[in-house]
Amino acid sequence: MEFLLITGMSGAGKSQGMKVMEDMNYYCMDNLPPVLLSKFAELCHESKRDINKVAVVIDIRGGEFFDHLFKGLEELKEKGTSYKILFLDASDNVLIKRYKELRRPHPLNPGGRIIDGINEERELLKEVKKRADFIIDTSNLTIGMLKEEMSNIFTEGLESRKLSISVVSFGFKHGMLMDGDLIFDVRFIPNPYYIQELKDFTGEDSNVKDYVFQWDQTHSFINKLIDMLEFLIPYYITEGKTQLIIGIGCTGGVHRSVAIANKIGEILKDNGHRTIVSHRDFRLK
């Protein structure tokens, strides 16, 4: 039986992750108390429904989280049920924004500042994050992108690719991509914004892409960047890194960075890497 534990930061998308696993025909249970892990696995084994894929969501809502979690996981292992841990994370700024949009308090600090609750939760979850088999940062992911990433891991045979790569376009005028591991500035490429017939289009439109990729320096940059990434990725994996965020920045985050981020993501996917592309400052005109 496949047994998956979904956990992570509150607001990072665990409920959506569970829905994705349900769509993949996993038998899912939300907010299972950690002390019941072993018993739940036994019930699934004994069920007449022939349950062979299980996903459970466990987080701080269960209370006394670490008092019972690792003990429950050890009992699973002792009784012959192997498991994997999926940890969903997001940046502090994104988590704060999500809480404010939903007008919800943080469960660990319902009467105080959201950031204080987030900091306390990160401290509580740091050990389980270290043990996670897979970490997905949902900061720049839509629900569709999250589904694609989870599909890559659990149905497309890429579960051995433990490094998740996120290529994010952004505009420097809107601020630096604060959670980026590698940041690249593509403002050396002529700006389509100053071409009247291109100004109101984006890097996903063919006329803008044709303009961006007509320059030799664009192709040289992409080739050199891919060469460097293919050199670095094996070393990141060896060092235990599970997530790599590559920022591609231009002035506004609409034209050059979008086109180039899409191309880099396409090449990395073709090379067999778990890759998601997102556009932080993308705006349709």
Rank of each mutant, 00 (worst) to 15 (best):
G171I: 09
S91E: 12
N152F: 13
R104Y: 01
D216H: 14
I58Q: 01
G11K: 13
V168K: 06
V56I: 08
M1G: 01
G249M: 07
E74L: 06
N271Q: 09
V56E: 02
F184I: 14
M145D: 13
T275N: 01
I153R: 07
S91W: 03
T218L: 03
K263L: 15
K48C: 03
H174P: 13
V94D: 04
M178P: 00
R122W: 05
P107A: 00
F154C: 08
S166R: 03
V254L: 01
Y83F: 15
L284T: 12
G203M: 12
S139K: 03
G240K: 10
N109I: 07
M29F: 11
G180W: 05
M150H: 09
V258G: 02
K71V: 12
G157Y: 08
Y194D: 05
E74F: 02
T242D: 01
I245M: 11
V254Y: 02
A55I: 05
V56Q: 01
R256Q: 06
G180V: 15
I143E: 04
A55P: 14
M228K: 05
F87E: 02
F134P: 13
N31W: 13
D185L: 09
I85K: 02
E46W: 05
A132L: 15
Y235K: 13
N93T: 09
I183H: 04
L36A: 10
G62D: 06
Y194I: 10
M21R: 10
R122A: 02
A12N: 10
D216L: 13
L86W: 04
I246E: 01
E123Q: 11
F40L: 09
H174T: 06
S139M: 06
E75D: 12
G72C: 02
G144K: 09
G171C: 04
N109G: 09
G144Y: 07
E22S: 07
E156L: 15
M9S: 12
I51D: 01
Y194T: 11
F172M: 07
S257R: 09
G272T: 08
V94Q: 06
P190F: 01
G175A: 10
G175F: 15
L177P: 13
R131E: 12
L125T: 14
D205V: 11
T7R: 08
I246H: 00
E159I: 12
A55V: 09
D210L: 11
